[in-house]
Simulated scan of single mutants.
Amino acid sequence: MRIHHLDCGCMCPFGGALFDGFSKGPRAHLCCHCLLLETDRDGLVLVDTGFGEGDVGDPSRLSRMFRLLNNIQFDPARTAVAQLRKLGFQAADVRHILLTHLDFDHAGGLADFPNATVHLMQDEHAAVQQLRGFLPRRRFVPVQWRGISRWQLYREEGDQWYGFESVRSVVDDVLLIPLRGHTAGHAGIAVRGEDGWVLHAGDAYFFRHEIGQTSRRCPPGLRLYQRLMDTDHDRRVINQHRLRALSLEQPQLAIFCSHDARELARYS
């Protein structure tokens, strides 16, 4: 299986290094790290979609609060469908999309791939059926998945993967790893590539130094944003601690999150 690392969205919140740990100017640089998988049997597979053509064409469909807070850059060249075309593929070639969760910066491109089956944890799908409260009504954008009928939903059951419960999807060598806390049904996506397993941890952590070392380090702006977006803080902290332990126990594993631009550059 060949793995392509894509950046399907740029967010540049004001605060610079207080958010990303490296920017010299007033604006930070956060990415939307997605994967394109070329499989032998299952065609093309996407892991998350970032912002889609619908978001770029009509930014107002996203919450004004998040557009301003994250200073989202609506660049059509960054959409997953545009990057696929640049690689010589068409939207119709994508047969499966696996989502870590349904936040606005992960599910925006679903409608760009109408032939794909969308794989998601059942708890995540259930949580967005009736949105209540100030934050849920702004972070989840039902128009992004309106009209999607081909859902494949999963419960927390199945094989073990390095000590984590895992759910084997219908796609060969791709697993959903329940990592709830950031959202009700948040999951990581484990992929067996040519050089071994990689784990797309989604938003289970946000900053590269939250794993790979014995103690967590995260810029204060990003730390606050993570706390703001928790749906189950205790569970998110537990799962992040488990990922940090895994990264130390199995240093050969490639683990990365959704929004750290330095991580994306390392794998790209």
Rank of each mutant, 00 (worst) to 15 (best):
H33M: 05
D75A: 06
L36E: 10
D55T: 10
T79N: 12
T49L: 00
I72G: 04
C34F: 06
F74A: 05
L46V: 11
C34Q: 08
K86T: 07
L46H: 08
V81K: 01
R85C: 05
Q83L: 06
F89G: 05
S60N: 11
D48S: 13
N70G: 04
R61W: 11
K86C: 00
G43V: 09
F66S: 03
L87F: 09
L87M: 12
P76M: 03
N70M: 15
K86E: 14
Q83T: 05
A77E: 15
E38D: 12
G43R: 03
G50I: 03
D40K: 15
V56P: 02
E38V: 13
F66K: 00
K86Q: 14
D48G: 01
T49F: 08
V81H: 03
E53K: 13
P59G: 09
D48R: 02
T49M: 01
R67T: 07
A77Y: 01
P76A: 05
R41D: 15
D48V: 04
S63G: 05
T39L: 08
G50P: 12
G54S: 11
I72W: 05
R85W: 08
G88E: 03
F51T: 02
A80R: 02
L62D: 06
E53H: 10
R64D: 12
L36D: 08
P76T: 09
T39P: 14
A80V: 03
D48Q: 03
R85G: 07
D40L: 15
A82D: 02
T39A: 03
H33V: 04
S60K: 12
E53C: 12
T79A: 09
D75R: 01
A82K: 01
M65G: 05
G57A: 13
Q73I: 14
E38Q: 14
P59A: 01
S63K: 06
